[in-house]
Amino acid sequence: MEENFYQTLFLTLKLASLTTAILFCVSIPIAFYLSRSQGILKSILEIIVTLPLVLPPTVIGFYLLLLLSPDGYIGFIFNELFDVKLIFSFPGLVLGSIIYSLPFMVQPIHAGLEKIPKQLMEASYLMGKSKWQTLLKVQLPNCKPAIYTAIALTFTHTMGEFGIVLMIGGNIPGETRLAAMAIYDAVESLNYQQANQYALTLIFITLVFLGFVHLWRKKTTN
């Protein structure tokens, strides 16, 4: 087994977990806003959220490369203020993954929130509960299956990310080298056995994760 095998897998899992956790926190206010609002702002936000779903990863990767590079707007700010280099680094990968996986987290939660009967929120308001209290105590607990789906989609999607990683992360072992890149490298060097090891491990982890999510969903639905 390759020396860096576990390191690459660990990095892949770390990126997927971090991206999922951050996106979960970011997406709830976005989905809440989308489920409550009407009008042009909602439409604009919906389009922005959907964009990563339809654009080729290389297009997003290309513009992220420009923005995150030390001369780019975001890269410059991070470099000057926090002395953090975003391009070809793990923090840059996290940022890229958050942008690319945004629709996978927002859209299921948004759909779940919209499905909740309006009267439940109204009943909560009449009981003196604020909008945030209602979100936390009534809306989110009643759209758990949608939240589980969002977590599963985001995590598994980030695990297999390739295009953006290639554009903004490169292939630095221990820093930005993820499982998908390792498979690509192994295939290029005709090392099919190693590619198979990575691919089977990814399939296994994804299946186990989806199995757990399916069980949670089933438990909640019951």
């Binding site: 009267q119 439940l120 109204e122 009943a123 909560s124 009449l126 003196g128 009643n142």
Partner: peptide
Amino acid sequence: PQERNIGMVFQDYALF
């Protein structure tokens, strides 16, 4: 509505 001190029974109950 939060500040109106109202108790309401909805037609379809609206239980959580």
